Simulated scan of single mutants.
Amino acid sequence: MLKAVIFLGLIGMLIFTTNYSYSQQQPGLATFQESAQVMIERGTPENVTASIALQSTSIQEIRVPAELEQKIRENGRITSVILTNEDRCVLGVSGKACIIINVARDPADKNFLAIQNSTKIIAGSFIGELNQAFDTKATFHSVFVQVNDEISKAVETSGGATSKGTVSAVYVMPMEDTESMYEKISAILLPKIIRDAGGFYDIAKNLSKEEKSFMTFSIIPLENKSLLQLKISADYKNEESSGEINPLEFLKTDELKRSDYFSRGFYPLNSILQVAVLSPNSTNVSDVRGTIVPTQIVAGDKIPKELTGEGWIFDPDQGEIIQGKYIFGERTSINKDELVFSLGGSELLAPKKVSPSFDESTVVVIIITVVAVAAAVYYLKGYRK
């Protein structure tokens, strides 16, 4: 988790640039990103969380009012703003949708009453504008003070943006089903050009129809811009875990198609699938049906040697935690059969595609991939590396 947080800070320097060009492949990096995430906690029952996240640092791509975004960012004490219909968004709240304003604790506040009052003053100065921006009518519920790590975990929001030293001002409103909430909020936040471009946006729309799905929108202020993320997640329980992993089964689609928003150029890093498997016992990746991308180690991370080919990068590929990232390369879609792999088999894990000569100038852009995926990990509910 610490590594993911460090990477999140690097986003402020790396992810804002709209386009990077290199001599051979000429890959680009857009501010808008789409990611699909599947986390599997093996056991009896097996717990699975499948998510689609759309994120950007541009308020033209995720349309938060400019004055509100600037006001939140320049406040200095607000660490995140989260809108969610996840049940029990924080400890003590049930059957309500929430707007949570997370505020860094002021060391000058020496007792609970002082902490509560200063947090309410800050949060109260934003809730009116937030209600207007989201077309909601959230009213004050309570203030939670996270005094240690255990309490921090107990009241953690689905945005993953609470920590020790953070105080959460919670505002509640009537619960709304995920499908209608996503339809409303995405229409407010996402411009028509992105909604009409399909891709992961359409998959999220289908995922929002699942019984145990929930929506989260997060504003994370950084130094010069904010990280804005709209996310749909669905929880599942499988009574019997299988050694075969089919990620798209949990995303309720037969095909993972990239957004047409990226069709104007080569943006291989802006659509990524990530799968994390947590097992009680050590296991290993085997029997991969699709391609495994040739990799090398850079700064301690396994990264692809080139960006035009599609395939998996497993890091680690054995142990109690398995993590796989799938990149599309030059392809615009991948079907479910190409993404299936197994755990615990005996077949050796080996690249199935010969790599061309490696251009070291691509290392910089590949590291940006790691940064982008780290942001996705940071928001993947329940995942602790």
Rank of each mutant, 00 (worst) to 15 (best):
P174C: 00
E179Y: 15
R63K: 07
T44R: 07
A50R: 00
V145Y: 06
I367F: 01
M215E: 14
E129T: 14
S158I: 04
I203R: 15
N131C: 08
L343E: 03
S357E: 14
S56T: 05
T295L: 05
V167T: 09
T308H: 05
S333H: 12
A133Y: 15
L207R: 04
Q24V: 08
T291I: 10
G76D: 01
A350C: 15
L207M: 07
F144Q: 12
E61I: 01
M215L: 15
P221S: 08
V340D: 00
N224T: 05
S361D: 11
F7T: 15
I185F: 06
I40T: 09
G9D: 02
L278C: 13
V155W: 14
G382C: 00
G198Y: 13
T79K: 02
S226P: 12
N284P: 03
A36L: 08
E41R: 11
P65W: 15
P316T: 03
I6M: 09
I272Y: 00
R105W: 07
K184H: 09
N47W: 01
T332Q: 13
I232V: 12
R258A: 13
I368E: 12
L2W: 02
L348P: 14
T157H: 00
V5Q: 06
L380P: 02
A276P: 06
A138L: 00
F250G: 03
G382K: 02
R331S: 09
A169L: 03
S346V: 11
E223M: 13
D106R: 11
S263Y: 11
N270L: 04
F144E: 04
E34D: 06
K225S: 06
T166W: 03
L68A: 11
N335G: 06
I321G: 06
P304Y: 06
E179N: 15
L2K: 00
Q318R: 02
N206F: 15
E211C: 01
P356I: 15
E223A: 12
A97P: 00
T332R: 15
S23Q: 13
P107N: 10
R289G: 05
D149F: 04
D315T: 05
E176Y: 08
L10M: 10
V38F: 03
D106Y: 08
I327N: 00
G12P: 01
N102R: 11
G309L: 07
T369A: 09
I151L: 10
A234P: 02
L251E: 02
D254P: 11
S361R: 11
K71D: 05
K225V: 14
S58A: 02
I82Y: 07
I6E: 10
